[in-house]
Write a protein that binds this DNA or RNA. Structure first.
Lengths: 139, 139
DNA sequence: ATGCAGTTGCAAGTCATTTGCAACAAAAAT
DNA sequence: ATTTTTGTTGCAAATGACTTGCAACTGCAT
């Protein structure tokens, strides 16, 4: 795990991204993250470890990390962008409209169908977004 | 067609929505619309017919019509919301990342799969969003 | 014609995010 | 180890896309 982090910071360094104290902490916070926090929440979690950390630095770091492919940004309906590590395999999201909770899922079958549709219409997919806004089934 | 419009305004009236000059024009503009314009574009198209029309009225009208189920709002990536009439059957969108052009498509097979996935995880779909960001295949 | 609840234009406000800038601090170079 | 170079930071102000308060209207049921 220390290894992971090391490899990562080295890669970032190589890309000309400096690992400052604020970025190191944000990287740690993101590594510990199990949910899909937004910028303000990440700032709340990181600030105690870097007193004075500004929200704009959080935004800037998030953009930098997204550019490096380290994290992914998701813009769900009517809410600020939320982030997650990019390490894991591709998946889509289900958002509980009542709680805001995010559940990940994946369907190769759907991906195939999407690709086929795009191809048939003369396009190639650059990326896609599929979100299911759901509610717990009361049973 | 005059019929259509008449039925529509009557329904709106019944819902307590007044058909003012600005709304009538916006309704007309939307009826003529073949693409997926945003609020500013709709304002641009309607203003000549209602000199002085304000952008806030456009936004307010759009919200009212959306509430009445007359139009649908789509929030594509990194762009202001775009609108379309709601009359047509459900479909999803493919956005050409180079031109911004929107192509509609529909796949019952995918819808089925989505529903199944949600059910399996204990949820029911309230609504979904599926967007394919694409590029013309150069062939 | 009349009264009033729904609408309008305008200015100001909100929210999430971005940016200009001078002070600062990682890496590099020496 | 010190200097130099160049990416970063915090802060305040700016942006973009809407939304809202408010006083002056205006559909439209009566």
């Amino acid at each position: 795990m220390q290894d992971q982090t090391d490899r990562l910071t080295r890669a970032l360094r190589a890309a000309g991204v400096r690992i400052t104290r604020q970025r190191a902490v944000l990287l740690d916070v993101l590594a510990e993250t199990e949910d899909h926090p937004d910028a303000v929440e990440l700032h709340r979690r990181a600030e105690p470890r870097v007193p004075g950390l500004s929200l704009s630095t959080v935004y800037r770091t998030l953009s930098a990390l997204e550019e490096q492919g380290v994290i992914q940004r998701h813009q769900f309906e009517g809410a600020p962008a939320r982030f997650e590590r990019a390490e894991s395999a591709h998946h889509d999201h289900m958002i509980d409209v009542e709680t805001g909770e995010v559940v990940e899922f994946r369907s190769d079958r759907i991906e195939e169908l999407q690709a086929r549709i795009a191809t048939e219409l003369g396009y190639e997919i650059v990326h896609h977004r599929m979100e299911l806004y759901v509610r717990k089934r009361r049973g």
